[in-house]
């Protein structure tokens, strides 16, 4: 997995609440069997009209936001479907961090599997960052120090230690778990005796 250490760049403001994963990447793009190539379809229905032409005033279609690495969005970002295509499309577009007051659980988890840092801030801080994003002020996100800097604002954020380490080191989660194979096998042996119906063959 890609590492995440720090990030510097323009942040795109998207002041909409409850941005769901259908908005981030609509269903017609879920038919792929690959993880890549979804960036062009990110926020498809907000970015393109019925004929597939760019909607010029949508934020990600305007300069300099078309180069954004950071998204500042309204409450409850990423709600709805579990589709990992949502973080895949963000990442493919170039977004490596999303800032909001809250995230839906599955989306939040999916971000960390793809080297994207979702950051939870207070409503007050979100308002400040949204304004900074609208004013095209450069953001700096420092994961080791857990700080977002934008103009005069310097905002600390929380992140669980294991998630931070995984991002910093770009660890392979499955590889780590496979190190506990003996424990998994022992668990299964124990349950085969205690709950044999769970191991019934069909």
């Amino acid at each position: 997995m890609d590492k995440f250490h720090s990030l510097k760049g323009i942040a795109a403001p998207l002041p909409i609440v409850n941005i769901d994963t259908d908005m981030i990447i609509p269903k017609q793009f879920l038919k792929t069997i690959k993880r890549t190539g979804l960036g062009v379809s990110l926020f498809y229905e907000m970015r393109y009209d019925n004929d597939g032409n760019l909607i010029k005033d949508f934020v990600l279609n305007t300069s300099p936001y078309d180069q954004s690495k950071i998204l500042v969005a309204g409450d409850n970002f990423g709600c709805g479907s579990s589709r990992e295509h949502a973080p895949w499309s963000l990442k493919d577009f170039g977004i490596r961090s999303v800032i909001s007051t809250s995230f839906a659980d599955i989306f939040y988890n999916n971000c960390f599997q793809n080297g994207i840092l979702p950051i939870v801030v207070s409503t007050e801080n979100l308002d400040q960052l949204m304004t900074a994003a609208k004013n095209q002020i450069e953001f700096t996100i420092d994961l080791p120090e857990q700080i977002i800097k934008a103009g005069n604002h310097s905002i600390n954020f929380e992140i669980e230690e294991f998630r931070k380490e995984r991002l910093l080191q770009g660890l392979d989660d499955i590889g780590i778990t496979l190190g506990y194979q003996d424990k998994i096998n022992a668990y299964e042996e124990d349950k085969k005796n205690k709950k044999p119906w769970l191991f019934k063959k069909n």
Binding site: E84, N109, D173, T177, L178, I184
Partner: peptide, 17 residues
């Protein structure tokens, strides 16, 4: 519900983090 990376994790290990 889980994401695709976790689907892979469950297939490989029958566990989830």
């Amino acid at each position: 519900g889980i994401g695709t990376s976790e689907v892979e994790h469950v297939l490989a290990t029958q566990t989830i983090v």
